[in-house]
Computed example of a mutant assay.
Amino acid sequence: MKAMVLNAPGGFDRIEAIESRDPGEPGPEEIRVAIKASSLNFHDLLVAAGMIPSDDQRVLMSDGAGVVEAVGDGVTEFAIGDHVVSGFFPQWLDGAPIPSVGNFAGTPGDGIDGFAATQVVRAATAFTHAPEGWSHAEAATITTAGLTAWRALVVNGGIKAGDTVLTLGTGGVSIAAIQIAKAMGATVIATSSSDDKLKRVQELGADHLINYRTTPEWGSAVQDLTDGRGVDHVVEVGGPGTLAQSINAVAVGGHIALIGVLTGRQGDIPTGALMAKQARLQGLIVGNRRQQQAYVAALNQTGIRPVIDRTFPFEQLADAFRYQESGQHFGKICVEW
């Protein structure tokens, strides 16, 4: 079996292809999956760069999509040949967040071995069915980025037709959020530092565009675009460096889904402005299995397909991370066996 592992203390030059022990046959309530693809997320980059400590020779990648090769006793949800996609928190099946999701101890590619391997044996509940007719690379975009956007807008945000959504940048979460928002009948205001990328999000349905490099006070620009009302939902992927502008942009009683830390892990928050807006600021990390199943059902109904910028062979995983770090991508970066 092939696997891509990270040697301590981390760094892209410490990623290595190895021959690993075959995982064997699945036990009761388990399935064996031939992994065909994964997709890169900011969390994966932090692990690979050594910014999140992990065990030596940790198998990388939180996302995994592939084909069921064998099923253990008691498994009725899956059959040999089914196309499946992994969950980010395999221990969180339904309901409110559970304590063990707070430290990533059970998250593939971080606390446990991930999906940069040709075969894995896991609990059947660690996977859901993939969307119908999707490639494995497309399905691999669901686990982290897609489900995060779904939870932000649909599960936590309760988005409805006529709402207004603000997205930041053109990474995987933001692109998925634009697609979900438009499918739900919302108006989308999208930001980016690149006019070329803004043209591409316009093609995806974004209604209003803001270049945050040329318009640094983009929160006020959002207020102008909404006649002083603000937006109902902000998909906040930046963190402390962008949160003040997001609070300015949100409507009174609106919702800010705090997802990312692209600008850092801590900083000043204008609490007075947040209180005056009576807005809901909610941190979230991906979602549970039940939410992923609902997201897949919605994808099957809407016909949404993910935007994949570029796909690398798994053996070039380090190069894929370097490309991700450069910020040139639009949408998702994937790797395939």
Rank of each mutant, 00 (worst) to 15 (best):
T118L: 00
F312Y: 14
V173I: 11
F88H: 02
T191G: 07
Q91M: 08
K2F: 08
V237Q: 03
I98E: 05
Q301E: 15
A65W: 00
F88V: 10
P131N: 10
F321P: 07
R32L: 10
Q291D: 12
E25Y: 03
G24P: 06
V250S: 04
E138C: 02
G230P: 00
T263D: 01
A137W: 01
A186V: 14
G172R: 05
T76V: 12
A8S: 14
G74T: 05
K197Y: 02
V47T: 11
D309G: 01
T226H: 11
D113Y: 01
D319N: 13
G228F: 14
T271C: 00
G157K: 01
R21D: 15
T170I: 05
D113K: 08
T125A: 13
V59M: 08
G303V: 12
E138D: 01
G50F: 06
A126K: 01
G238R: 08
A96K: 12
A65E: 04
R32M: 06
W337T: 09
N7K: 15
W337G: 00
A117E: 04
D319Y: 04
T125Y: 07
S20I: 09
A8Y: 04
G253M: 05
R122E: 15
G327P: 07
E69S: 02
G95R: 14
V252M: 05
E315D: 15
A183T: 12
A257T: 04
D63Q: 07
Q278V: 12
I178R: 07
A8R: 11
M184L: 08
N211H: 09
A34K: 13
D309A: 14
V307L: 05
G133A: 10
V71F: 00
T191N: 06
A190P: 10
G230C: 06
A152D: 13
F88D: 03
